[in-house]
């Protein structure tokens, strides 16, 4: 193996985003070798990535790190929904125990210099007492008590503990906004794929999105630039939920909050959409994160703004004009075209 560049360990390569990221990373000149780790082999083409079948929940991962002489670890094996992991308890185990084992292994490996963890802006929670824009040093107004957000909050606290114990390792934590794009399957995209979109009556959430291409780009950027710290990652701008629904040209159904939660559970058990009740508070109050540090300290600029990322996603769903819109556009066209005939008598 040529020791020209970094040797990168990527966890969670069996999932689509992880696989594509590992593959893209392997083709970069600065990176010597990429080792992908997961419990199940990836389904697609992994290019130059060497896959090692290892469970990060077991100490085997320490052997992989030691044997392959890893210097950079990219931790992507954090799942957001029980559907992927096969139940909430195994999701929790994969997320929290997996991270603990991985960090324990990294702590014992002197060769590790850089750790990149993909976190999420869900750690800030969503409530009516939230500031408009969360900066990286803000705490959630209500600590997440369950679900994905709680897992991520725990993972972050373990990562902070690791950073204290191994001060020589540069730790980059990327809190990404909701990833969206044509190829993304997560609770939010499945929510927007519903034929009629349930919304919480009387509330309009502020949403921020990150395009999948930008997620790849920021992970690659973090590996290359090695800037330590915690960063909010989101596309520029803000989209209201009502606006997003209108842009999709889909009807929305306003329901009381608890019914949206129940509907989410029903849809999940029917396997229509992996959309769980914990998203209800997000869909009620929304969330905004400040990305000044991303631009100024990390030096990353997303290619897609929030609106553009959503437009790209909407295009993949096939947006067609609805009758109201067609009627308005027709009227407008007639007014523009017919203004000469209409304006005849008085002008």
């Amino acid at each position: 193996m040529g020791s020209a560049g970094k040797t990168v360990l990527v966890t969670g390569v069996s999932r689509d985003l992880g696989r594509r990221f590992a593959r893209a990373l392997a083709s970069e000149p600065e990176v010597g070798r990429v080792i992908g780790v997961d419990v199940v082999p990836p389904r697609g083409d992994i290019g130059d990535v060497s896959f090692v079948r290892a469970d990060i929940r077991t100490p085997v991962i320490a052997k992989v790190i030691a044997k392959e002489d890893i210097d950079t670890v990219v931790h992507l094996s954090v799942v957001s929904t029980p559907g992927i992991a096969g139940g909430r308890s195994s999701m929790k185990e994969l997320n929290v125990i997996g991270t603990m084992q991985l960090l324990a292994a990294c702590q014992r490996a002197p060769g590790v210099e850089h750790l990149v963890v993909k976190s999420t802006t869900s750690v800030y929670g969503s409530s009516n007492r939230d500031p408009a824009m969360f900066t990286e040093d803000m705490e959630p107004r209500r600590a997440p008590r369950w679900g994905y957000a709680k897992d991520v909050a725990e993972i972050e606290s373990y990562v902070r503990g690791f950073a204290r114990r191994r001060a020589d390792v540069r730790v980059t934590m990327l809190r990404t906004a909701n990833v969206i794009g044509p190829g993304v399957a997560n609770p939010l995209t499945s929510y927007f794929r519903l034929p009629a979109i349930p919304t919480v009556a009387g509330y309009d959430a502020r949403l921020q999105f990150l395009h999948e291409a930008d997620l790849m780009a920021v992970l690659g950027h973090a590996v290359r630039s090695e800037v330590p710290g915690t960063f909010n990652i989101a596309g520029e701008g803000m989209l209201m939920l009502s606006q997003a629904v209108r842009r999709l040209r889909r009807p929305s159904v306003s329901l009381p909050g608890f019914m949206v939660g129940q509907l989410g559970s029903a849809l999940r058990s029917a396997r229509v959409a992996d959309f769980s009740p914990e998203h209800v508070s997000y869909l009620t109050y929304g969330r905004g994160v400040d990305t000044t540090r991303m631009r100024e300290v990390l030096g990353f600029r997303p290619r897609y703004s929030t609106a553009e990322a959503f437009a790209d996603f909407a295009e993949s769903l096939g947006v067609s004009a609805r009758p109201t819109e067609r009627a308005l556009a027709g009227l407008e066209g007639r007014l523009a075209g017919g203004s000469t005939t209409l304006g005849g008598p008085h002008g």
């Binding site: 408009a132 824009m133 309009d204 502020r206 701008g237 803000m238 989209l239 209201m240 009502s242 606006q243 997003a244 629904v245 209108r246 842009r247 040209r249 929304g286 905004g288 609106a307 609805r322 109201t324 819109e325 308005l328 556009a329 009227l331 407008e332 007014l335 523009a336 203004s339 209409l342 304006g343």
Partner: peptide
Amino acid sequence: WEPELARLLAFLRRRVTGDYTVDEYG
């Protein structure tokens, strides 16, 4: 009235299609 009405229609269409921008506070 003609440009005014055209503007109103354009406004309505923007509202219906969600083609407007809000700032970070909504």
